[in-house]
Design a protein around this nucleic acid. Structure first.
Length: 875
RNA sequence: GCCGAGAUGGCGGAAUCGGUAGACGCAGCGGACUCAAAAUCCGCCGCCGCAAGGUGUGGGGGUUCGAGUCCCCCUCUCGGCACCA
């Protein structure tokens, strides 16, 4: 055994051992007698962006800690890994370096795989795949065809960002302040056809089944429920006359109780009524054109200035028959509901602002006792559903929210103008992308037969891997060998669909594929039902809604297609906090953003030491400081763990990452503290080296330990108890603290070297420390376990549990308070049951010198005793 | 703007059910070892104060014998907002 801690040496040896013994190969032995319970531990697979960053290290270390601990606790653990390999960054890299996305992606995978392996993760690599492999995405296509058959997949128009210069569709990320990131051209909205998946059909199930997921964080379930946004309201129509006939303008509202307060109706720019009005109104036509530009993003829609223009048309109030003017509003979306909203300025904040701006009437129809309505400024109570009662509403006057809604809905229904309706905020999932590097949508366009699905026996539709996108549209459009085909129905010449699927499709079922990754003839098989659902899923909180919701939806579709037996993919979810770093950028001449890595700039600090700006090291010119943000390749603020691993070893990197903060917490990156983690591991090694001979001699514990040794042993078992509790909470930073405290305790044993049982206590406690550390720092734990002769393989050792016998003590320390202030401590003898008599505690407390001093001769009014914790004397 | 989370010493963080605020570590300071440095080891370390003591968990208010923890209001930071993944 080396005297000095040599991380690189022992880490290579330990990894070679795990390789040789195939330690992390998960066996599909569900039905064998005596088989272990399964534990499917999954970390979200990475996008192969080039290098790992600290967010990856954090994510995968958390998963590895849980995997290794469960393995030691006797589970059959599956921890697979793969690659979310399709996506935009590969195309961006191609534009920059003229390298085909496929080659770039596979190179990145090779590099990142080596990095993952050097961190010593307990991964079953035999199940690895990348989503850009035809053997994987074939099944995206196959299930898409099943969805098409069931009507879950369908085609309709979608609104996209269009760059008129590059003649290409832009992702939201590529639109900066309304302009294309490369061309600087003002981005237009454009309507094009695309495929949708009817996730709204599952809205109720996706909402209701959240209650079957006790292992999910409440905040994630709340976010999903709000995203689905189930509401019960009223869909009704404003009738109007049009060329002799009566037509209906439909709207949906959750505030039907305010219907008598409607003073205008707003419709989307694309609404037929708006289009009709614009035919002989050039001003309105121009405004509609203006609305059609602008952003498609919800955040922009919500923050932009609300504008409108009258159409000159009017509709009738469905109950009073009053004439209601119709406006076009830039904040009304054609894609939501019916593309029109009723406006009640008195009781909706947005309508209030709009009415004030354009001088529209405001009619209060809700009163709250003790409040006086004034149209001068908006008050929170105007929208209060709880306390409001109807006024100025004829027969509905005096009704509360529920009664008014019911009565009004009933009256609308009686007139054939509406009814109550359940509405969801959730929209269907548009999966068509006008991009090359993705899974081809298996459709053939035939001039005679229309859109024809590719027959199953012609799957997969393979994406050619040698294209190099240049930023001007999808290169598949130029590939005759891809596009040209024959119609499966009529055999005449036809063309292939060139749109590819949203990459969220790829990540919506990869966890199921790991269980049957080698199956060439089916998407999943019986092994999937054995391993699924995932017992512990770990990934960034940024995926709380989209990825997790799409995966839940996809799983339900797979279940309803008879492929799997479960309806929820992830039994337990741990949402890891983001690892943040500073973001620096500069505007380019074209109006795009150029990002600078933190090590490429010099910081400008204010008096308080906060970062307020920076200058680029390269040219000395100013760059903008954008604050802290998630580490990502596109923002160039990722920190590569490579140098950390090379300097200190994987164990230090892992330990430091776990020690830095609890997993769910956001973490601002700083590497100060890495040295401390390294120092600790060096001390662990040195201690192990120092006691090697003694432990190899297998020292025994005497029946009765001297008090000093019993105390050491009790402290270590108490720390272990705490650490096991923290493991259960996934609070690995305090597990790391406990390990440090155990070593501190053991290092203070030196004065007791001559006492009987010293070596035995030390050997027992050090074996606890090694096993506790094993999930966090597996290499050093593995090596010392063998060197000290504890066993062949620490992974096969039982997980340590505190011994009750070691925890017993005969006195406890209580905090003494006078009037709630800490004034001293009390030592009280306890009985065999570990508790002390209450009257004895009170007597001892009142008699203590500290109590006498601070009671100042006054009689005690009350004495509060919190068992095992404190005594508070109130005077 | 909407939805969700967070804020504790110079820094990362701890405090399990409302019960000793600052565990553990980093940085810093002092000392030992050394020709010297590194490494290592020992000690100190929230703020004000000579001390007694007071004060202190983003800000303001409240409940309680007792609040970092519960309630109300506010500020700031982070995540998401449907084509980044």
């Amino acid at each position: 055994m080396q005297e000095k801690y040599q991380p690189n040496e022992i880490e290579h040896a330990a990894q070679a051992f795990w390789n040789t013994t195939q330690s992390f190969r998960a066996t599909d032995d569900a039905d064998l007698p005596g088989s272990k319970p399964k534990y499917y531990c999954l970390s979200m697979f990475p996008y192969p962006s080039g290098k790992l960053h600290m967010g990856h290290v954090r994510n995968y270390t958390i998963g590895d800690v849980l995997s290794r601990q469960h393995k030691m606790r006797g589970y059959n653990v599956l921890q697979p890994m793969g690659w979310d390999a399709f996506g935009l960054p590969a195309e961006n890299a191609a534009i920059q370096n003229s390298v085909p996305p496929a080659q770039w992606t596979y190179d990145n995978i090779a590099y990142m795989k080596r990095q993952l392996q050097s961190l010593g993760f307990a991964i079953d690599w035999s199940r690895e795949f990348a989503t850009c492999q035809p053997s994987y995405y074939k099944w995206n296509q196959w299930l898409f065809l099943r969805m098409l058959e069931k009507g879950i997949a369908y085609k309709k128009t979608q609104v996209v960002n269009w760059d008129p210069v590059d003649q290409t569709v832009l992702a939201n990320e590529q639109v900066i302040d309304g302009r294309g990131w490369r061309t600087g051209a003002v981005v237009e909205k454009r309507e094009i056809p695309g495929y949708y998946l009817a996730i709204t059909r599952y809205a109720d199930a996706l909402l209701a089944d959240l209650d079957t997921l006790p292992g999910w964080p409440e905040r994630v379930k709340t976010m999903q429920a709000n995203w689905i946004g189930k509401s019960t309201g009223v869909r009704f129509a404003f009738p109007y006359a049009s060329s002799g006939a009566t037509e209906k303008l439909w709207v949906y509202t959750t505030r039907a109780d305010t219907l008598m307060g409607v003073t205008f109706v707003a419709v989307a720019a694309e609404h037929p009524l708006a289009m009709r009005a614009a035919q002989n109104n050039p001003q309105l036509a121009a405004f509609i054109e203006e609305c059609k530009r602008g952003s498609v993003m919800e955040a922009d829609m919500a923050t932009m200035e609300k504008k409108g223009m009258p159409t000159g048309l009017a509709v009738s109030h469905p109950l009073t028959g009053a004439s209601i003017p119709v406006w076009v509003g830039n904040y009304v979306l054609m894609g939501y509901g019916d593309g029109a909203v009723m406006a009640v300025p008195a009781h909706d904040e947005r309508d209030f602002a709009f009415a004030k701006k354009y001088g529209l009437p405001i009619k209060p129809v809700i009163a709250v006792a003790g409040e006086t309505f004034s149209a001068d400024c908006w008050q929170e109570w105007y929208a209060d559903k709880e306390r409001g009662r109807c006024i100025n509403s004829d027969k509905y006057d005096g009704l509360d929210f529920d009664a008014a809604v019911s009565a009004i809905a009933a009256d609308l229904k009686a007139r054939g103008l509406g009814d109550t309706q359940v509405h969801y905020r959730l929209r269907d999932w548009g999966i068509s992308r006008q991009r090359y590097w993705g899974c081809p949508i298996p459709i053939i366009h035939c001039p005679a037969c229309g859109d024809v699905p590719v027959p199953d026996d012609q799957l997969p539709v393979v994406l050619p891997e040698d294209c190099v996108p240049d930023g001007s549209g999808n290169p598949l459009k130029k590939r005759a060998d891809f596009i040209n085909c024959t119609c499966p129905k009529c055999g005449t010449a036809a063309t292939r669909e060139t749109d590819t699927m949203d990459t969220f499709v790829d990540s919506s079922w990869y966890y199921a594929r790991y269980c049957a990754a080698d199956n060439d003839s089916a998407m999943v098989d019986a092994r999937t039902n054995h391993w699924m659902p995932v017992d512990q899923y770990i990934g960034g909180i940024e995926h709380a809604i989209l990825h997790l919701l799409y995966s839940r939806f996809w799983t339900k579709v797979m279940r309803d297609t008879g492929l799997v037996s479960h309806g929820e993919p992830f039994a337990n979810l741990l949402t890891q906090g983001m690892v943040l770093n500073h973001i620096f950028s500069r505007r380019t001449e074209q109006g795009g953003l150029q990002y600078f890595a933190p090590d490429e700039v010099n910081l400008t600090l204010d008096d308080a030491g906060r970062t307020v700006g920076a200058t680029a090291k390269a040219d000395g010119l100013a760059v903008d400081y954008q604050g802290m943000g998630t580490m990502s390749k596109s923002k160039r603020n990722g920190v590569d763990p490579q140098s950390l691993i090379e300097t200190y070893g994987a164990d230090t990197a892992r330990f430091f990452m776990m020690f830095a903060a609890p997993p769910e917490q956001t973490l601002e990156w700083a590497d100060s503290g890495v040295e401390g983690a390294y120092r600790f591991l060096k001390r662990v090694w040195a201690f192990g080296h120092g006691i090697q001979a003694s432990v190899l001699a297998r020292p025994q514990l005497p029946a009765v330990l001297p008090e000093a040794l019993a105390t050491v042993r009790r402290e270590v078992h108490l720390l272990l108890k705490q650490a096991n509790y923290d493991f259960g909470k996934h609070q690995f930073n305090t597990v790391a603290s406990a390990a440090m405290k155990i070593l501190n305790t053991l290092e203070k044993m030196a004065p007791y070297a001559a006492l009987s049982g010293h070596d035995g206590v030390r050997a027992e406690c050090f074996s606890i420390l090694l096993r506790l550390l094993s999930p966090l720092t597996p290499h050093i734990a593995h090596t010392l376990w063998r060197e000290l002769g504890y066993g062949e393989d620490i992974l096969a050792a039982p997980w340590p549990e505190p011994l009750e016998a070691a925890l017993v003590r005969d006195e406890i320390e209580l905090v003494l308070q006078v009037n709630g202030k800490h004034r001293g401590n009390l030592c009280i003898k306890v009985g065999a049951d570990g508790t002390a008599n209450r009257t004895a505690i009170e007597a001892a407390a009142l008699a203590s010198a500290e109590a006498q001093k601070y009671m100042d001769g006054k009689p005690p009014k009350k004495v509060i005793v919190v068992p095992g914790r404190l005594v508070n004397i109130v005077v």
